[in-house]
Design a protein around this nucleic acid. Structure first.
Lengths: 190, 190
DNA sequence: TGCATCATGTAATCAGTTACATGATTTT
DNA sequence: AAAATCATGTAACTGATTACATGATGCA
């Protein structure tokens, strides 16, 4: 279960509550791993019961108290073990590609809107990642001499940027193809 | 549940047995959706009980009989409904990225082997996709005038190719980063 | 007064993986 | 004789999603 490992990495980078983790899974670490708050709370309880996390009640002013989790020894051991064990290269689960192939049995032109919507989402994500890159790594405000953690976070972010760029270019290709299919309804005969 | 939809698309492209579907999910449609045979048999039974698929017993020589499934009216309706409904742009689940960030709390150099292994898998997949592209779409042996189905299958395959190329380039970037972190242990001072 | 944000959870369901199980035919 | 391929399934478990549920604070 990689959610456990993602939580361990995130809590090692910075301790936090379930709520804060859910926020991080919407940005930062969420670029390459997603989880809902329900899932996060369940896993946090289990790992705390296990002794892999420790919890500290933090009182706050003007806000409800929170439970701040951090990684305990056995948690670090879980992570180290996983890091040293090979994992399967992931296979894609790409709904939109299924839809595109399915469009052959429906109206391909009807997919144009949907593909455009997806392209816009990826454009937005790209802009968001690029802004984050400048803020955290390449801009003048970025924290000075990068350590290993910084370098590794940066290379993962570059992966997200490359992924979004590739996806946008591919969706352009898909749109061209859909337009070609809808465009010239008459044959190419002389 | 997109597995249902992927099965419908695949059976519309060509009727087949659970076993044959499992084979297809290892190639072709499996480039962007994976499923185990256990899962496939379960979903096929359900959809047949539902009336969304029809099954035909086919006797074979020299091989066990098989059940050939094809899409019935209600199955087509399920697919059409899904095609017209917007879906969420998918978010990544990228274990290797979690590992890379986790390496900050372990030995980054220990990840080099793992990343190289993943890169090799992606190189192999790319070669496989490119061979398929020539065989089915761009080569002299490719079926002549492409119809809509062909064009759509091709654009999806181009997406797979773009994904693999992007991933290989990114893994090169990751390896550079890991080497830089391990390579010069002494500071950059004058 | 109502809405957004912060904060935490339970219950039910659905999807996916792993392990187990069988048996025929074909190739080495 | 053994291994690979063809062919189909069940059972148990784990992971993920969806729906439901509560309650405080701060702002407009």
């Amino acid at each position: 279960m990689a959610l456990e490992h993602a939580i361990l990495v995130s809590l090692l980078e910075k301790p936090g509550s379930g709520y804060e983790l859910a926020r991080r899974f919407e940005r930062s670490i969420g670029y390459f791993w997603t989880a809902s708050h329900q899932q996060i709370y369940r896993v946090l309880s289990r790992m705390e019961a296990d002794g892999r996390l420790v919890v500290r009640e933090v009182e706050q002013q003007g806000r409800p108290d929170k439970k701040e989790y951090s990684v305990a020894g056995p948690g670090r051991a879980t992570l180290a073990e996983w890091l040293h064990k090979p994992i399967e290269p992931e296979s894609l689960r790409h709904d939109l590609a299924v839809k595109i192939r399915g469009a052959a049995f429906d109206d391909p032109a009807a997919l144009v809107r949907e593909v455009e919507r997806h392209r816009q989402v990826h454009r937005d994500r790209l802009a968001h990642y690029l802004a984050g890159e400048v803020r955290d790594f390449t801009g003048p405000e970025a924290p000075g001499p990068p350590d290993a953690g910084q370098e590794l976070q940066h290379v993962v972010l570059r992966g997200g940027i490359a992924y979004e760029r590739m996806t946008i270019a591919w969706l352009d290709d898909v749109l061209d193809t859909l337009h070609r299919l809808a465009g010239p309804p008459t044959g190419a005969g002389v």
